[in-house]
Design a protein around this nucleic acid. Structure first.
Length: 265
DNA sequence: CTCAGTGTTCAGTG
DNA sequence: TCACTGAACACTGA
């Protein structure tokens, strides 16, 4: 479930629970894919005994600031998730990849059944791939309307593809892109460079408001406004957003895209 | 049994 | 070199 709002919500919870505490013990699954080729021993050596100062986020990545040179960077992929608890995960819990036991008994468990998530150990996370390739974070570094116009006029791809491109803006994923375009009244197929100044202004405003509101409610989708496409997009066959306004589904930019042709031009 | 999926990277093309 | 597209990755559940 990880787009910017989910990841930012995790970040806040993790920072609150881990800040100022020391990693007392570390359990690492022998999974070279998740740990980008690193051995359990290497991961453990770099985490054990470290004191967590902060948890940072850019786009869909988070990393810990610690009293160590090498820092852990997390990306949740499609199905990664964290559990904060005071109990060790029991054996029945599948796909646990990392367990951090903190000095005060707090336990952070990371699991990822599909294994698209990654945990990197890096020196200056922002200076190296994959973080170095990210465009401005849409919550903390959203470009001005003017800058956004300049960026979009250079792009010939469908606006949906540009919103999903993490090197242009970071943090937007599939449902957010559809939500932003729906609320902006823009058809996802439109080429980015074809947007009028008024449309770019609208898009800018909706990137900001969709991001802020979903973070504000802690990425709890039940709390998203009733008017959002989000609540209707999953009913595949001929869903309606309101009387007469049909939701269409189609692959755009390689991803399933939901939009309402009667409202998005 | 087949296929799609809240994501990213890389090979191939123009 | 750049921008863009589509496939691959790994696994679960509809």
């Amino acid at each position: 479930m990880p787009e910017l709002p989910e990841v930012e919500t995790f970040r806040r919870q993790i920072e609150k629970k881990l800040k100022g505490k020391t990693i007392k013990d570390v359990h690492v699954a022998p999974d070279k894919l998740i740990f980008a080729g690193k051995s359990p021993a290497f991961v453990k050596k770099n985490l054990q005994g470290a004191k967590v100062k902060k948890c940072h986020r850019k786009g869909k990545y988070i990393w810990f600031e610690m009293n160590k040179e090498i820092l852990p960077v997390f990306h949740l992929g499609m199905t990664g998730s964290y559990i904060l608890s005071d109990k060790f995960p029991d054996r029945s819990m599948k796909s646990v990849k990392l367990v951090l036991e903190m000095s005060d008994g707090t336990i952070l468990t990371y699991k990822d059944p599909r294994r698209f998530g990654r945990i990197f150990l890096l020196k200056d996370p922002l200076e190296h791939r994959p973080l170095s390739r990210l465009g401005p974070d849409v919550m903390n570094e959203l470009p001005s309307v003017k800058e956004m116009k300049k960026i979009l006029t250079k792009r010939k791809a469908p606006i949906k593809a540009v919103l999903l491109d993490q090197s242009v803006f970071s943090g937007i994923g599939n449902w957010m892109a559809d939500e932003i375009l729906f609320q902006s009244g823009i058809d996802p197929h439109r080429l980015a460079l074809s947007l009028s100044p008024a449309e770019v202004k609208q898009l800018h405003s909706k990137i900001s408001s969709v991001t802020k509101l979903s973070v504000k409610v802690g990425a709890d989708d039940e709390k998203y406004p009733k008017s959002w496409l989000f609540h209707h997009r999953w009913g595949k066959k001929g869903g309606l957003i309101s009387s007469g306004h049909v939701i269409k589904h189609e692959t755009v930019a390689g991803r399933t895209t939901a939009w309402v042709p009667s409202k998005q031009k």
